[in-house]
Each structure stands twice: as C-alpha cells, then as structure tokens.
Amino acid sequence: MTRRQIDWTIATLLGVAIAASLSASGVPGWIRYLGQLSTATALTSAGVMILLRAGLLSFGQGLFYFVGGYAVALTTKLAAITDAFVVLLVATISAGLVAVILGSFLARYRGIFFSMLTLAVSMVVFGIATKVRLFGGSDGLNIGLMSYAGYRPRGADAQWSGFVFCIWVWAAFSIATHILLRSRFGWLIRAVADNEVRVEYLGYSVKQIVWVAYTLAGMLGGAGGALAGLSARHVDPQFAYWTTAGDFIFVVLLSGQASILSPAFGAFLLEVLRSYASALFPDQWQSVFGAMMLAIVLFLPVGLDRLVTLLWSMTRKAVSRRSRSLAGGVVS
C-alpha cells in the first residue's frame, strides 16, 4: 500500500476552522470572543512552545504580543489603514524585525538566563510604554473596526467576521508553522535541547538555529498580538507585562508540546477556565485558578495533549489491527 499519508494535524486544523466558521453565527457572542482571544493566545503560545522545544523558556513572549498589538493600533491610528490583512502583515513583520534584532544578542543565552533576559527586555518596554504619549500611556490605545479586503462589516456582522478572520489566520499560521516544525529545521530545534555540541558537530550553527526559532516565535507572537488587538479593539502596556508571558507559558504546560494543536487546545481551555473561575468565584477566582494549575502540574505533568495522543494511538492501533485482519482475510 503506497497510499499517501494524510497529515492529520493539517486535516484537524482545517476541520476546526471550517466547523468554527460554519457555526460562527449560531454561537453566542461572548463565546465567539473567547474563541477569538484563544486564537491570539494560541499563536503566541505556539511561539513559546517552539522555544521550549529548543529548551528555552521565554518569559518575554509578551513583548511580541505587545509589538503586534501596538503595530495594529498605530497603523490604524497614524496611517488610517483599517484592512485587517494589511495590519496583520505589518504586525507580523514588525514583530519579526524586533525578534531578529533581539535574537542576535539573546541567542547566546540558555536556561534561566534566557528567561530572565527576555523578561528584562519585555519589562523595559512595558515601562517605556506607560510613559509614551504616542502609545496612550498606561490606558493604551483603542482600535477601530476593521475592513477585510474591501468588505466593511458593522454592528453584529463586525464581530462575526472578526471571529472568522481570527480563526483562519490562526489556521493558516498554524499550518505554516506545522510544516516548518515537521521539516529538518523542526527536528534541529529539538536537537538543540538534547545536545548542542552534537548539533554543532553535525555542521549546524546552534546560534543560528536558536536565532531563527526566536524570530519565528516573535512572528507568531506578533500575529497573536495583532489578533488580540483587533478582537479586543484595545491594546495596553499590560501586553508586555511579565504575567502576560506567564499565561502563554501556562498554556503550553497545560496542553503539552506534542503538536501545533496543543497550544490552541490549551489556550481555549485557559480562557474557559478563567471565565468560569471568575463567574463562579468572583472573589476567589485567583486561588481557584491557581489550584487547577497546581492540580494539572501534579497529576498531569506531561500536559493534556498526552491524553489525546494516547487515545489517538489507541484508536489508530485498533483501526490498523482491524484493517490488517481484513486484509489478511482477503489474502487467505
């Protein structure tokens, strides 16, 4: 049998995107909004996941989230461009540029020092942003309604089309990232975490790999920040604060790092958990949230995606066993 293997990750991504777009109008607005935020968080967290695969824990992913969000706010404000595709592109590219510059210097660092340095840079930016008038100070900036290649939805349509846009941007970026992670480069990232010296002996530059991975993470963060900005229609310096980066790390640990789907799943779960914790325990949502986090770390340290992977491999085994026995039946 030389049947071409279906890439189930891509299939799932497309399936989710299609299902979400079709059901978009039937879902209450607040859940759609949670969905939009999840796509933003998912892309940004995917950046954290890539770096974590290289063994690097970034506490500064919020910086790119910030750059992406403010790129949207400033292009709409200063250049009066409201096309969602254009501002998304601007956001991704500016975050990528920032990442290239910072990466040239950060790629030398490992372990806790990488974490702390990314944190420091991000906090400096937070401090500057609360001061600068152009950035709206600590109040941040509001963002107007978007248009999509000429289509200008207003009122209820605006939210609906924003949701569909977010879903497809998420799907497209995820597929691209997935293909990249599946490639040789993707495996080199993991190799860096395993043993840097061996990677160097194989003829690759570890610094370059980390640099590229960091840039990739930055672009994903920028895209995520752009989605967050145009969903919330508001950005503020809090984007760059270290606790925001903490959320992204939490998402990756919650969901695991098995595939590009993991952070998406984790992001949605995070938004839902937070929403219910604060609905049911308005006074104590923090501790409820913390307790859930702790429970996951203690009882499911590999991340929730392990469950899915296990179930998946079990069904695959069952299916292949059945098809084998069927095939065997034909032969005999």
Partner: peptide, 8 residues
C-alpha cells in the same frame, strides 16, 4: 486582570 479579560 486587565482590559482583555474585562472585555470577555
């Protein structure tokens, strides 16, 4: 929890 959470 920040403006984004408040919007949700």
């Amino acid at each position: 929890g920040g403006a984004q959470k408040q919007l949700a």
